[in-house]
Design a protein around this nucleic acid. Sequence first.
DNA 1: ATAATATCTGGAGTAAACTCTAAGTCAAGC
DNA 2: GCTTGACTTAGAGTTTACTCCAGATATTAT
Lengths: 117, 117
Amino acid sequence: MTIAEVAKRYGISADTLRYYEKIGLIPRIGRNKSGIRDYTEDDCHWIEFIRCMRGAGLPIEALTRYIALFQQGEETAEERKLILIDEKEKLEKRISELNDTLDRLNFKIAQYNKPKL
Amino acid sequence: MTIAEVAKRYGISADTLRYYEKIGLIPRIGRNKSGIRDYTEDDCHWIEFIRCMRGAGLPIEALTRYIALFQQGEETAEERKLILIDEKEKLEKRISELNDTLDRLNFKIAQYNKPKL
DNA sequence: ATAATATCTGGAGTAAACTCTAAGTCAAGC
DNA sequence: GCTTGACTTAGAGTTTACTCCAGATATTAT
């Protein structure tokens, strides 16, 4: 797949895809004989995964660390798992905070509904 | 209260407090005879509210709109309520997305735990 | 009264995460 | 064979949300 096709598929710009590769957020993409990127299905899965995680606010640093370990092979599985667990716990905290803010927002809206005092 | 006291109370820098005031994220703070800010308890409540909402990712633009309406008086109550409802709905969607990502993370961690195939 | 510390303003600088530009290469259509 | 459009790279520019700085004024301690 060309960069344009992948960009369209995920609604990302080609610039962003190149940027993600440059900073190691996705693996280095293979090139054809003339140096043009050719994305595999595996590459696409990474992109989709990374997009999802970034969308939830996982830090780029944790994700680049994760992908670097992944590329080092099976013996890094335990370390990769720890990264996921760590980020999972942070995400749970974050969701809990957001729920608190949501409660507060609902309370404030209720105040606007009631007070014909 | 001085700006330093408020900064300490909420763990924000004085620069950030001045910045929030400059962009209308909190109301204009009253000054003493020599032009130095004197924060009231009401000012502090605004700061705490805004911090909480910003922490949940509510856009600055919506919050500046909200505070501008608030300062225009009681007749803007309905419009302010609509802003809160709108942001509440966006926050619910966001939390739901985060929960989906959390599920995915848990699934991936489970894969790391199992596969002694 | 003087030195040290805190505050003021306007504006410049910073970091993150893109986003765009320039200059060059390459494949496809006419 | 040449133009058009997509692709390449390195590097500059943008946006958001602060954060810092300079120069001036004010308050506090000695």
